[in-house]
Design a protein around this nucleic acid. Structure first.
Lengths: 206, 206
DNA sequence: GTCTATAACTCGATAGAC
DNA sequence: GTCTATCGAGTTATAGAC
């Protein structure tokens, strides 16, 4: 029987460290500007190894998106509670997820979606229909209004992400979570359950 | 005397058409992905001509940013009126400018700022301090709160731009201006003049 | 003033040695 | 499993012919 001495060929941990580096670099630069070479350098690994493990750059991106956070599980939990505070809970949830290490994947997807058509489609289909629709549905909002309210919530959440994580405008960039929750939550609340002039025009006209 | 027949060497109008194409392509793709070749192709002109007229790509970008719209003139005009409707007027102003042909430069700057550090700095310095500070100053808002309120307004305006012009999420992408003004204006209003818990923490603590 | 040709650089992806 | 070498396609920018 063969006894392998010393460190094994590094198989399982290099693949994992490539994934971590990919999440980090994708989050910092977005899909397009994140080069395989840079990701490999970050992981102190040969660029060819990245291709060997993950094939194409797109497949690497998809692999790095497999986050331990499941919207189907975390959204209903956040929406449960007094409906009049759902806005604040949604902002708190988003900031909590995105500020966590596991949230790098979400930031990467968002940042990439801003400059790449392929990831933009990925995000539209995933976030807007999966996350926001789920959130408004959880609150029992009229189907005819759901799309409009979800899109309006998206404007506030996306803007928060842009200012805090992409443009890094102070004082929002480094404000504590609860301060932003108190400031922005009520505005999200209005989009969720408030009176919105013109929101009915899409659906029933009675 | 020399009589030139037919079309003159195209001097003055080619330079102008390059500028127009630059604004358009920069707005569509952002600074990085907008190639000199694509801009030249759009203007039906040789790529080398672009360099001949404008030097580098950065100088071309700066030249294309010289919009006929002057914030110093248009902001005070929009802020004049009942203070309790300033939010709606601000949203109406932004949508009016950005939907207009002359607004392509603004969209270009914004889109570029999302993926390029150089243009991001340009935008932080110009928009946040020039436009938003001017707007909140026009309303006579406390200096200590101005930065926070301006940044919060930025989250909503930037988010509106992202959803409407970059990600193109319906129904916001193709909603009429006044519907968005009615839906989003009040939220901007709250950031401008409303009660914001925690907004005082930066400044005076009395 | 206009355009061809090309330098000098990036990138993703692959072939093949070890 | 790992790495060297390289291909082919992008890019900005420049030099120089006409």
């Amino acid at each position: 029987m063969v006894r392998r001495s010393g460190r094994r060929p590094g198989n399982q941990d290099t693949k994992q460290s490539i994934l971590e580096s990919a999440r980090k670099v994708f989050a910092e630069r977005g899909f397009d500007k994140a080069s395989i070479r840079a990701i490999a350098g970050e992981a102190q690994v040969d660029p060819a190894l990245v291709h060997h493990y993950f094939g194409t750059k797109e497949k690497l991106f998809l692999a790095s998106m497999n986050s331990p956070i499941d919207p189907a599980e975390v959204i209903p939990k956040a929406m449960a509670g007094p409906p009049e505070e759902a806005g604040e809970r949604l902002v708190r949830l988003v900031l909590g997820v995105w500020d966590s290490p596991a949230g790098a994947a979400a930031v990467a997807l968002f940042r990439s979606a801003l400059s790449n058509e392929w990831t933009a489609r990925l995000m539209r289909e995933f976030v807007v229909t999966q996350v926001l629709r789920r959130a408004v549905a959880e609150l029992g909002i009229d189907e005819a209004q759901a799309a409009t309210r979800a899109a309006l919530v998206a404007t506030q959440i996306a803007g928060l992400a842009v200012v805090r994580y992409v443009l890094r405008v102070e004082p929002v960039a480094s404000a504590p979570t609860e301060q932003l929750v108190a400031a922005i939550g009520p505005n999200v609340q209005r989009y969720l359950t408030g009176d919105l002039p013109g929101v009915f025009e899409t659906g029933d006209g009675h």
